[in-house]
Simulated assay, not measured.
Amino acid sequence: MKTSQLLPLFALLMVFSLFTGCKKDDETPEPSTKEKLVAHNWRGDKVMAMGMDASTHPILASQIPDIKTMVLVFNENNTYTATYSDNGQTIPLSGTWELRNQDKFIHFDLLASFGLPEQVEIKTLTSSNLVLTTTAQVPVLGPTPLEVHFIAQ
């Protein structure tokens, strides 16, 4: 073949490679921690202490509210509302919250209502689950690691 016959074939090959070589990515960016928190109302599921459900431990169960009755709402303006039931009565709570330490911790006064530290670590945050960890000073038991589990509503 002559060079003049190869030139159009080479040009055609180059044009096709331009259209097949590059493809736009349709990836959407991962939502931020704040976007995930404010996207849902979070219903309490369980509190785990020392690897067991705290509601089954007499000392722990008397120290914390029935987590299954709690609904926690993080608002975009860094306020929160929460409700839970205590002896059949609905208890409302509200306050402010903020993310700290590269969005790995939440600082809010809700936990102080129950004698817990105001800062908790975000162990898990997905579109359906939120797990917060902290250590509580529990009578008789001393410092006790806790995991508070929530499910998106």
Rank of each mutant, 00 (worst) to 15 (best):
M1S: 11
T3L: 12
S4T: 15
L6S: 01
L7I: 15
P8R: 01
F10A: 15
F10M: 13
A11G: 05
L13F: 12
M14Q: 01
V15Y: 03
S17L: 14
L18P: 00
F19C: 02
K23A: 11
K24L: 02
K24V: 09
D26V: 03
E27K: 12
P29Y: 07
P31H: 07
K34S: 06
V38M: 05
A39Y: 07
N41F: 11
R43D: 09
R43C: 02
G44N: 04
V47G: 04
A49R: 14
A54P: 04
A54E: 01
T56M: 10
L60R: 10
I64M: 15
D66K: 15
D66I: 09
V73K: 14
N77W: 12
N78Y: 10
A82P: 03
T83S: 13
Y84T: 09
D86Q: 15
G88R: 04
Q89Y: 03
T90C: 00
I91S: 08
I91N: 04
P92A: 08
P92W: 05
G95H: 03
G95P: 12
T96P: 01
E98R: 06
E98I: 02
L99N: 07
R100S: 08
D103H: 05
F105G: 00
I106Y: 03
F108A: 02
D109L: 06
L110E: 01
A112Q: 11
F114I: 10
G115H: 13
E118D: 13
V120K: 05
E121V: 02
I122P: 10
I122Y: 06
K123H: 12
T124P: 08
T124S: 11
S127F: 11
S128L: 08
V131H: 04
V131G: 03
T133C: 03
T135D: 03
A136C: 08
Q137K: 08
P139S: 12
L141D: 11
G142S: 12
L146P: 10
L146D: 06
L146S: 04
V148R: 01
I151Y: 00
A152T: 11
Q153G: 11
Q153V: 09
